[in-house]
């Protein structure tokens, strides 16, 4: 380990020396880049992640001097992967620079991929607002490159986070759009009722019974088989419970559905919000009487 560290430092010194010296037709940058690459690899083997990241950034600047934007972008990505172990913010800024470089050279699919990676880093840090922003950018890039499935995955993440941040309409629009797209595809049509359920739960969070009823009718028109599903029954029964302001009925309906298909944490969170609002309404009614 220490052996690799000293090796890395040696390569780095040589590279710095090359840069400060004279070189013919920019060959000094090529030589320095080669040495920085070796140094970074040694630091990685020594598990000295910060040093490895810093060295990759020096490598990137050498590539930029040589006008090799693709290699520079890749060096930024390597730096980001090293910083990921120690400093998330630095990792994000490296990936951001890589994305800009990939955009400059027209490699939009690569840019999309790394935008998604930034979003995942923010998600891991529980920074939902930033994760949402980057997933949205990523979805946009994937859509431009016609990588539909990856675009849809990112859009679903956007919808999920939007709902958590109480931007319900945004979430509803995304889920409905994905459901509409999926209907025309033999492989994706089986996921339609899941998307419509998610959209329906977001509708429930808005606490507008008329809107919920209209949405259910719209979903039925969209997919005639939806009205026969347990998902439809769940949404319809919850809508009825909200209309009647009956918390007990709401609980029974959710419990029955969960006994067959366990609800994930996202659905549970949103349904709990609905329940809290329903309880508050019930208490208001009691206070008035």
């Amino acid at each position: 380990m220490a052996d690799q560290l000293s090796k890395g430092e040696e390569f780095e010194k040589k590279a710095e020396k090359k840069l400060s010296g004279w070189g013919l037709f920019g060959s000094k940058y090529e030589d320095a880049a080669d040495l920085f690459d070796k140094a970074a690899n040694c630091f990685k083997l020594a598990k000295s992640w910060d040093k490895a990241g810093a060295t990759y950034l020096k490598l990137a600047s050498c590539h930029l001097k040589l006008e090799s934007k693709h290699e520079a972008a890749q060096a930024h990505v390597d730096a980001a992967h090293c910083y990921k172990k120690t400093n998330i913010n630095e990792s994000v800024s490296c990936l951001d620079r890589a994305v800009n470089l990939f955009c400059d050279i027209g490699r939009l699919s690569m840019a999309a991929r790394y935008l998604k990676e930034i979003a995942e880093l923010y998600e891991g840090e529980q920074n939902i607002e930033q994760a949402l922003v980057y997933y949205e950018k990523s979805a946009d890039f994937f859509q431009n490159e016609e990588v539909t499935t990856s675009a849809n995955q990112c859009k679903q993440k956007v919808a999920q986070f939007a709902a958590q941040l109480e931007q319900y309409q945004k979430s509803i629009d995304i889920y409905e759009e994905i459901a509409r797209q999926s209907l025309n595809n033999n492989l994706l049509k089986y996921g339609v009722k899941g998307h419509l359920l998610n959209a329906g739960i977001c509708q429930l969070c808005k606490e507008d019974v008329v809107a919920i009823t209209n949405a259910l009718e719209r979903y039925q028109e969209l997919d005639p088989t939806f009205s026969g599903t347990r998902e439809y029954r769940l949404l319809a029964d919850i809508a009825a419970a909200i209309d009647e302001e009956d918390v007990a009925k709401f609980t029974d309906v959710v419990k029955e559905f969960d006994s067959m298909t366990p609800l994930d944490s996202w659905k549970t969170t949103l349904l709990l919000r609905v329940k809290e609002k329903l309880k508050a309404k019930e208490l208001e009614e009691d206070d008035l009487t």
Binding site: G194, V254, K255, D258, P262, L263, D264, S265, T268
Partner: peptide
Amino acid sequence: SGSKKSPL
């Protein structure tokens, strides 16, 4: 809908 256990 990953591997998270449902609290229900």
